[in-house]
Design a protein around this nucleic acid. Sequence first.
DNA 1: CCATTGGCATACCGAAAACGTATGGGTTGG
DNA 2: CCAACCCATACGTTTTCGGTATGCCAATGG
Lengths: 295, 295
Amino acid sequence: MDLRRLRYFVAVAEARSVGKAAERLRMAQPPLSVQIRKLEAEIGAPLFRRGTRGMDLTEAGQALLARASEALALAADGAEAARAVASGRRGRLSVGYMFVLANAVLPRLIPELRRSVPGVDLDFAELSASTREARLLDRSVTVALCMPAIHHPEIQVARIGAQPLMLVMPIRSPLARLNTVPMARLQGRPLIALPPPDQDPASSAVAALLRRHQIVMPIASRVETVHSAMSLVLAGEGLAIVPACAKLGAPRGIVFRPLRDAADSIDIAVCWRRDSQSPLIRTFLKCAEKIVARL
Amino acid sequence: MDLRRLRYFVAVAEARSVGKAAERLRMAQPPLSVQIRKLEAEIGAPLFRRGTRGMDLTEAGQALLARASEALALAADGAEAARAVASGRRGRLSVGYMFVLANAVLPRLIPELRRSVPGVDLDFAELSASTREARLLDRSVTVALCMPAIHHPEIQVARIGAQPLMLVMPIRSPLARLNTVPMARLQGRPLIALPPPDQDPASSAVAALLRRHQIVMPIASRVETVHSAMSLVLAGEGLAIVPACAKLGAPRGIVFRPLRDAADSIDIAVCWRRDSQSPLIRTFLKCAEKIVARL
DNA sequence: CCATTGGCATACCGAAAACGTATGGGTTGG
DNA sequence: CCAACCCATACGTTTTCGGTATGCCAATGG
């Protein structure tokens, strides 16, 4: 069963004539006649009644016509859908994000995205620091909005911004009276730590900052998210050093202070599998850059 | 866009491997690989991600897969539907009948038909004597249960029975006291006439009967149906000569009497266009023969 | 580190299918 | 009775398809 034959069949059925249909199909009449007869042989029944003034569908032909034109439309639609997905006009984009960025970025990013790619199914998923690589690698998210960036040979990273590190403490803390906190004042105080990227404690921006200033802060707890860290800080478990944008989601009773002599920051990055060639990734990147630039 | 290519595409997508799919399709791997690449060229986008352990659909490929398998199913279903219609397992049969036969035949014929061809859409339409040929010729009915038969070069006729002619009169008529009525008693009485077949007044069985016995009955009225005739008879407008089976639909106050020395009858026939090759016609014929034989 | 294996891609050739041109046959209408 | 119209058939040419042989690449294992 060949789709061309069905196309020919539909043309002849609509034109009610082999000659007219051949003209419309830009081909000669005899081969079209042959194809129709071959189709009839394949089906095993006459599809047309041959009259002296053209041809007319039999009942069997009518039964075929309905499904044949549907099948043709479906095949054409399938090709068009594949092209649309390949070009980024349609499809699905699964966006992963880390919760630190949710409050600062998502409320403006999501509407912007929907406006940019109206035909695309968008899908958002929070990523935990410990599973974000895996989610990208197994394609359960197509693109991830990360902070800090991921380092992995299969993953492509585009840095789109950065946030300065700030000290986070309860409002009752004596340090809260300072406008900026000197690094030396952190010496020996308990720290609520976040998971370092790359499973390597030394790779964290906070660790680097402390190391450079030769400050030692004992780790009171390790938590998964900046928000958990802030909760523990509020509970008096210690201090935390987090990106400035976390302020938007901070609970009452928490204050943010810049660290004197510390211009350190954490990158905001868009990350995706190197072999994901979806054009939606570029679109996402542009939107994210635009929104993050305004922070 | 070729249906074979889509079939190949679906096979490869399901097997997630060109080699495995080729095996299942009973062909060599290289030509299949070529066909897949041709399909990708036709679409203008990669449909598979080639890995070292086989192939995997891209998003564009997934978009195509859904519609491609639907299109394949539809094409197969179309062929099957056409075969089913051609063989009489499915389809539509539009049955025309003349009202004289409705009461005697339809109540038993319709259930019998539905049992014989359960997949077929049946459709019944009353035919008037004056338009029955036209309804067959323009195919608005496929087959007609007629009385009397139609004569037309394009129409095939199968005689399946006959009904004797009987005299119809009001119960109060003096003739009603006779068990059989001699032909001579009809001389000069007004007749409620029915339309002759073939638009020719001489072609009617009643006309032939009267002519043979040299009886003249003035025509009081011409009506379309036997039932109209019986109504007029009841109203005292005249007598009518009708087939015996009309008795089943006769109004109260009407009596039927055989005519002495007159074995004349009217044929019951199944009629259809010579060029209608639907096998349902044969089935219908068998059912109708069986039911009419029991009259 | 090299050999082997598994999988897809490419090249080439023979076979099958489709298309075009030429032509025949049947019916309609003047 | 001839011309016009339409579908069917025949035949040669061209395109396309499938099979075999082979190459390339990556992963695996000794």
